[in-house]
């Protein structure tokens, strides 16, 4: 009998100085770039880059719903699709929807629904399409961050933006915002979505192993991460809407000078 030996990448996930394999501190997020209003056809859209994650979200609606049997008489239905591009991962992903994508579509919808004032638009549908163009861990969280901005960009009334962040454990250390390698070889992954002003957790999943103490620590770290990302979302939204009005104002003032 022989045994196949494979290298163990988990060895180097955190070094003696407490730094992670990509140089981050345990409580440090990846660099995040957010842009609102990146597509012209969609009623609202947003793009997020979080480390190597590149995800684009588009929103259509409220619009007429087809097929008709999906009508909900006292509120808008919300439809959500999370899809990974075939070229988004190391090995090509088959384009057919996987069970993982079906589940993630559902949990993302359920993470966003509490924030939408869907009772304003009965008998209609709000469609949320999420395309993960490159995936490097934590894509469901990044998708929620982008999709919530896209809903706002579409002018859909929201109670507030939904923010999202994951935490996990590698080599016994609780860390925030796992990237692919940490997700694969770490000991736990805990993605969370939060409506910070309502103090409402709208997504929580977990896999791995965490004691009660570790869970409490990780959970609070995730809430903190969500709050940080929420500030970035606010800035991104202001950037789009402020810039447009600012440039108009500056044009006006220039014309006045002439």
């Amino acid at each position: 009998m022989y045994k196949l030996v494979k290298p163990d990448p988990s060895k180097n996930l955190i070094n003696d100085k407490g730094l992670r394999s990509d140089g981050r501190r345990p409580d440090e997020l990846r660099s995040i770039k957010l842009q609102v209003g990146v597509l012209d056809n969609a009623d609202g859209s947003a793009y997020i880059e979080q480390g190597k994650n590149k995800i684009i979200a588009g929103v259509y609606g409220p619009r007429e719903i087809h097929p008709k049997h999906l009508i909900i008489s006292d509120r808008a239905a919300i439809r959500c699709r999370y899809r990974m591009a075939p070229f988004s991962t190391d090995e090509r992903k088959h384009p057919a929807p996987s069970r993982r994508e079906v589940e993630i579509s559902k949990v993302i919808r359920e993470a966003l629904e509490p924030s939408v004032l869907s009772e304003y638009y009965p008998r209609t549908v709000i469609d949320i399409f999420i395309e993960a163009l490159q995936c490097d861990g934590g894509t469901r969280c990044a998708s929620i961050v982008a999709a919530s901005l896209a809903l706002a960009d579409a002018g859909i009334p929201l109670k507030e933006l939904v923010s999202s962040c994951s935490v996990g454990k590698v080599k016994g250390h609780v860390i925030v915002d796992l990237y692919d390698l940490e997700d694969k070889y770490g000991e736990a992954d805990l993605p969370i979505a939060l409506m910070p002003n309502h103090n409402l957790v709208t997504l929580i999943q977990m896999d791995g192993k965490l004691s009660k103490e570790e869970f409490d620590k990780a959970f609070n770290m995730a809430l903190e991460g969500c709050r940080k990302i929420r500030n970035l979302q606010n800035d991104a939204l202001k950037r789009k809407y402020k810039l447009e009005s600012d440039t108009e104002n500056s044009k006006d003032s220039k014309e006045e000078v002439k």
């Binding site: 359920e110 805990l190 103090n199 957790v201 709208t202 999943q205 977990m206 192993k209 965490l210 009660k212």
Partner: peptide
């Protein structure tokens, strides 16, 4: 130890 979690439904938790 906690080994798995899943939230479902249209609301949220504090």
């Amino acid at each position: 130890c906690v080994c798995a979690m899943q939230k479902g439904g249209l609301g949220g938790f504090e």
